[in-house]
Simulated scan of single mutants.
Amino acid sequence: MPPILTDFSNAYPNVDVEILTGTRRFSLAQREADIAFRTVPFDTADVIQRRLFTLDYGVYIAQEAADPECGDGTGCRLITPSARHFPDIAWLLESFPHARPVLRSNNCIVQGRMCRQGVGIAVLPCVVGNQIPGTRRLELPTSPPGRDVWMGYHRDLRRLERFRAFISTISNHLTDATA
């Protein structure tokens, strides 16, 4: 998002942008947000949605930690998100069935930093995990499943010029990234 927001802010300096993050799903129908990004599709009437891309995930450990044995995990500890219903977490638990979950957090930066401290193995978005010094991505026979990122907005906003400009900025970045 930072490159998208930078381009948009430079092109439209008089438009204020507010970013809210959290685990709570903001209601587009009740105008709690103009636009939302989620890792699950929207299920509300009057919401226009688009799958933007798939977020790749990898398995990370502290730089100096020994490689765990995939398919076992005996003696290993796991760092997981607070929510356990994501397929990448099920993959982690299946890949290291004898590892013990020791820390849960709803923040992937916290998960990555605890991984760096040697607390355990974490499944992180690659764009996050690859940026955390002191961690390394494990080369395993299979990779955890990615998550699709969805953008949604209430259909009443589709004719607003500044909103269409923002959507266009997002589309331009996605087109450039796949070219």
Rank of each mutant, 00 (worst) to 15 (best):
P81Y: 03
P81H: 02
P81R: 03
P81G: 03
S82R: 09
S82Y: 07
S82V: 12
A83K: 03
A83W: 10
A83L: 13
A83M: 06
A83D: 14
R84D: 12
R84H: 07
R84E: 10
H85T: 09
F86K: 02
F86N: 01
F86C: 00
P87C: 04
D88I: 02
D88P: 00
D88V: 03
D88F: 15
D88A: 10
I89A: 05
I89M: 13
A90R: 14
A90D: 14
A90Y: 04
W91R: 03
L92V: 13
L93R: 09
L93W: 01
L93Q: 14
L93N: 10
E94H: 09
E94T: 12
F96R: 03
P97W: 11
A99H: 12
A99K: 12
R100Y: 10
R100L: 15
R100C: 12
V102M: 13
V102S: 12
V102W: 05
V102F: 07
L103D: 02
L103A: 08
L103Y: 15
L103P: 00
R104W: 01
S105M: 04
N106E: 14
N106P: 15
N106M: 09
N107V: 06
C108I: 04
I109T: 08
I109Q: 06
I109F: 11
I109W: 09
V110F: 09
V110M: 06
V110C: 00
Q111Y: 01
Q111I: 03
G112S: 13
G112D: 08
G112A: 15
R113M: 07
M114S: 04
M114P: 00
M114G: 00
C115F: 11
R116D: 02
Q117V: 00
G118Q: 05
G118Y: 04
V119K: 04
V119I: 12
V119Q: 05
V119L: 08
V119R: 14
G120E: 06
G120N: 05
I121M: 08
I121F: 08
I121N: 07
I121K: 03
A122G: 03
V123R: 00
L124P: 05
L124G: 06
P125T: 01
P125Q: 11
C126Q: 13
C126K: 15
V127T: 02
